[in-house]
Simulated assay, not measured.
Amino acid sequence: MADAATYTDKGKPFERDMTYIPDRLRAGDEPADPLEGAYGADPDAPSWPVEPGRYRLVAAKACPWANRAIIVRNLLGLEDVISLGMPGPTHDARSWTFDLDPGGVDPVLGIERLQEAYFNRVPDYPRGITVPAIVEVETVKVVTNDFPWITHDFFFEWREHHRADAPDLWPADSREEMEAVMKRVFTEVNNGVYRCGFAGSQEAYDAAYERLFAALDWLEKRLTDRRYLMGEAITEADVRLFTTLARFDAVYHGHFKCNRNKLIEMPALWGYARDLFQTPGFGETIDFEQIKAHYYRVHTDVNPTGIVPQGPDESGWTTPHGRG
């Protein structure tokens, strides 16, 4: 997400703007997801057809919300049907830019700024230019930036294009419990670290801090006697938690003042995070240098000097996790 646009007014708690372009990519012949209506999807949102090669996922490695989409694309084997464009880790108030590509231009979309794809769809688009975003290649128009539903639809709507051994990221027998777990992970952990980092007052920060670590303690306990959040198999819930855990010690502990303890000091969570990091599809999407550059350079209100720390030591991520 374009976090520079989400700072909180002084004295107020942080609130994330969750208004996105609601369009969906739908296969048409897939049965409707029975739980969609309960979890925020707009049933009347415009639909775009599932069509290999038609869309490009634009997702910066630096961003945890975009990182989810990259991981799910990898796990499901969608690399050959949905291309991937990756902006650099830093951006200004206008937009993410493709400064990692030759000439600073995305080689497929032919644009320098993701903002161009938004403006092609909605001239003078008034909200933040966020990642992940699905862009139609031919028109270079953004289709949707509704990040929770992008990964949902990768699973449910693109099944015909999954690889044969793709994991069942949304198991039917535990779906309702998983939705509840993901809701708590989002509100208290994924968003909780931002609630700490962008708190507009001491009171707001203190409350956010207590909420975050209460949730991390709950997760530590939950993961003490199970390998993954829902049991013995990886699900979407694990993807959503992992991207925050991967950034915790490098960014959130210091930059966002989430400093009761580090991830490496929570045995179950640290083992769990290493287990996922070492699973194909996860660890290769993590670039700690890009992550640190994004947070420490873009969030100038939090870190006005722009200095990027050298640590922490990353070697622990590849040590045995003991959770097999």
Rank of each mutant, 00 (worst) to 15 (best):
L276G: 06
K61P: 05
A172F: 12
A268S: 15
W170S: 00
G311M: 10
G254Y: 15
P34K: 14
I134A: 02
L276Q: 01
P89W: 04
D301C: 06
A250T: 03
I111E: 03
M86C: 10
A2T: 07
H161F: 11
M18V: 13
P22S: 11
A133G: 09
A32R: 08
E203T: 14
E179P: 01
Y296P: 07
T318F: 11
G197E: 03
G28D: 04
A5V: 05
R297I: 12
I21H: 03
D92H: 00
R184F: 00
V189P: 08
R297S: 13
H294L: 05
Y194T: 06
L223M: 05
E265L: 08
R260I: 03
L75N: 06
C196L: 13
P280W: 03
G324F: 10
P43K: 03
A4Y: 03
F119E: 11
A133V: 14
R26F: 12
T90Y: 02
N120H: 07
D124Y: 06
Q278R: 03
A69H: 07
R323M: 14
G85M: 13
T90M: 02
I286P: 03
Y252H: 15
A133F: 09
A164R: 05
I111T: 01
T318E: 13
I307W: 04
R54I: 15
D99F: 05
K61L: 13
A214G: 05
Q290H: 08
E36T: 07
W48K: 01
A204P: 09
L169C: 04
T235E: 09
E203V: 14
T243I: 01
D238K: 08
E179Y: 12
N74Q: 13
R159E: 09
A45I: 15
W96I: 00
W48Y: 12
C196Q: 15
F119C: 03
N145I: 12
P312T: 13
F119D: 11
Y118G: 10
D124G: 04
A62E: 02
L100D: 07
D238I: 11
F242V: 06
T318L: 14
F242P: 02
A2H: 13
F186P: 09
D173T: 07
R175N: 01
G283A: 10
V298I: 08
E220N: 01
V251H: 02
W149V: 08
Y7A: 07
V131K: 08
D44S: 05
N145V: 11
E176F: 15
A2W: 00
P148Y: 08
Q290R: 08
P320T: 13
R184S: 11
G40S: 07
N145K: 11
M178L: 06
A38K: 06
L263H: 00
F242C: 01
T305S: 15
F119R: 01
S95E: 06
I82N: 09
Y252C: 14
T318M: 14
V81M: 12
T285N: 02
Y55V: 01
I21M: 06
D33C: 13
F277P: 03
A93S: 12
P309A: 04
T187I: 11
Y205P: 00
T235L: 11
E232H: 02
P52V: 00
T130F: 01
T244P: 14
D23R: 00
G231S: 05
E289Q: 09
T151I: 15
I82R: 09
T224W: 02
A250D: 07
Y118Q: 12
V181C: 09
T305K: 12
A133K: 11
H152G: 00
T318G: 12
V122Y: 08
T305W: 12
D206K: 06
K61W: 13
Y228F: 15
